[in-house]
Design a protein around this nucleic acid. Structure first.
Lengths: 140, 140
DNA sequence: GTACTAAATGTATCATTGTACTAATTGTAA
DNA sequence: TTACAATTAGTACAATGATACATTTAGTAC
């Protein structure tokens, strides 16, 4: 399925933030098969209009779901239910997913003609700069 | 060479704009000799169709590369790798392409929740098995 | 060879969609 | 009330998509 109506019921008096309600209901609709991987969700503006809410509120809900890898939001394109649900279900799967990701990276690097030395050096550099950026982040 | 398949790998969830990914990967492939001066690139529509992307997105990438004198786009004719690319940028381009590839890999791995230790260990393993496979290859 | 037509290709412009940043609003505790 | 934090809304912007157009090429009829 590619298009979906996505009927959500908001309760403005529940005390539960709207974005939380959106997150919860999308999650439960996915769990119940009402939404399926690959489904396109309404645009932030369309859903916001239907719910009589600001589109940034919908965007916030989408961002949370995106960070949880439940949906994939793509600027200029739309938002979709993630095709492959988060692999953190088991340690084995988790390890396999890193192996697959790494192998894709290594094979691409070799295909581009880089040497083992160049690759491992660049990995060290990249890890280092990422760590430094993260330290700065925590200092704020 | 005049015609080229030009295999590109897009990541719609990386946060990196699609046109940037196209620019980077074409630069990489040129820097590594996969593409050569004089090569004709796919038409904006052909590449867009293959990548499941709007052809204006490809056109944008081509325009950036054209402004950098890396390719030459000619309305009604097609786009070609510039015959004489500035040689002094080759090594720089090559290094940048590995850096970009590595950074995409690292950030994706972190985003999936893997630790620095897990990542570097997996890179070592992957490099090792690649090397072993290559040794076997040479023994044949 | 010339003129015409059609197809292929890149270009220009605007609409659609998500993002970032900021301001206003609301609820709550001191 | 006042102050503070959380939530929601407003505004500007960036990335992508849709559509119409201009240029070049190649074919075809004459």
């Amino acid at each position: 399925m590619t298009e979906k109506k996505l009927t959500l019921q908001l309760d403005f008096r529940s005390g539960l933030p709207i974005y939380t309600q959106i997150v919860n209901q999308i999650q439960s609709q996915l769990a119940n098969g009402i939404l399926a991987p690959g489904d396109q969700l309404p645009t932030v503006r369309a859903l916001a209009s239907e719910l009589r809410v600001n589109f940034n509120t919908v965007a916030r809900a989408y961002r949370i779901l995106d960070e949880a890898r439940i949906i994939s939001t793509q600027q200029g394109r739309g938002t979709y239910i993630t095709e492959i649900p988060p692999p953190e279900v088991s340690e084995k799967l988790r390890n396999e997913s890193l192996a697959a990701l790494t192998n894709r990276f290594i094979s691409e690097a070799f295909r581009l003609g880089f040497s083992e030395r160049e690759i491992s050096q660049m990995v060290r550099d990249s890890l280092k700069s990422w760590k430094e950026a993260n330290v700065k982040e925590n200092e704020k």
